[in-house]
Design a protein around this nucleic acid. Sequence first.
DNA 1: CTGAATCCGCCGTGATACTG
DNA 2: CAGTATCACGGCGGATTCAG
Lengths: 135, 135
Amino acid sequence: MDEQEGTSPVPGERGVTGDLFSPACPTRELLDRIGDRWTSMLVKVLAEAYPGECGFAELRRAAPGISHKMLSQTLRGLTFDGLVHRRVEPAVPPRTWYSLTALGHTLEGPLAQVRAWAEANMPAVREARRRATAE
Amino acid sequence: MDEQEGTSPVPGERGVTGDLFSPACPTRELLDRIGDRWTSMLVKVLAEAYPGECGFAELRRAAPGISHKMLSQTLRGLTFDGLVHRRVEPAVPPRTWYSLTALGHTLEGPLAQVRAWAEANMPAVREARRRATAE
DNA sequence: CTGAATCCGCCGTGATACTG
DNA sequence: CAGTATCACGGCGGATTCAG
């Protein structure tokens, strides 16, 4: 997974693009991480196990629908960002254990807020969509 | 814009697809809306003007780097979801005013939490990335 | 069993041009 | 100035395959 993200660090190319938001709006960077399909779910799963560890297969079971590739890729990204700790157990059937770092654990708070809003208000959003579609 | 349930509803297979998350995990739906590049920023801009209105050009100025198309597209999506109200002023130079709905305004809270986390912890994330890249 | 690499389809994004 | 339509491009995500 290229960690260099979308906005090119190349200056001069286009001065009016999102480059300006890297310093002014770290929210953008955060959304690049949690805005994807799986990150927030994995953080939730790992947070519920905190400070315990989860194995690869265990995580896969906890996040039904995730592909083998995306689980590996997402965990790599989270580890790269210092949100997840990775412990390899050098056995014959290799086991790898993942856990939330302290930093990653602090993300669970805001994430829970988002979940709470979603659970409380997504029905209203769905209703608005239904009405907008109907007319 | 959405409503495309891309995951295949395989009948025979046990529910391994993402379909199960529509009811169980509204967070997924919310991220489909705020996970993109501009939604959260526009909500912030509109929230700061709440309960006032913003014109198209005004929003464009407030979100430097956004393209004409994406601003239009994002606003359409937000209106569709009942988060933004749209008022057309039938004048010769047509003006359109956007404002946050009450529902949309309630989203600003969680969003602010996310921003706060990002501003406080993204430096640590960047540092982790730097270290991970260095080694 | 973990996980990395490859091929490919889909969608988000931007540039451009056009209508009112 | 507001809004839409069209096209091209790049990256994400999934299925599959290969390595350790």
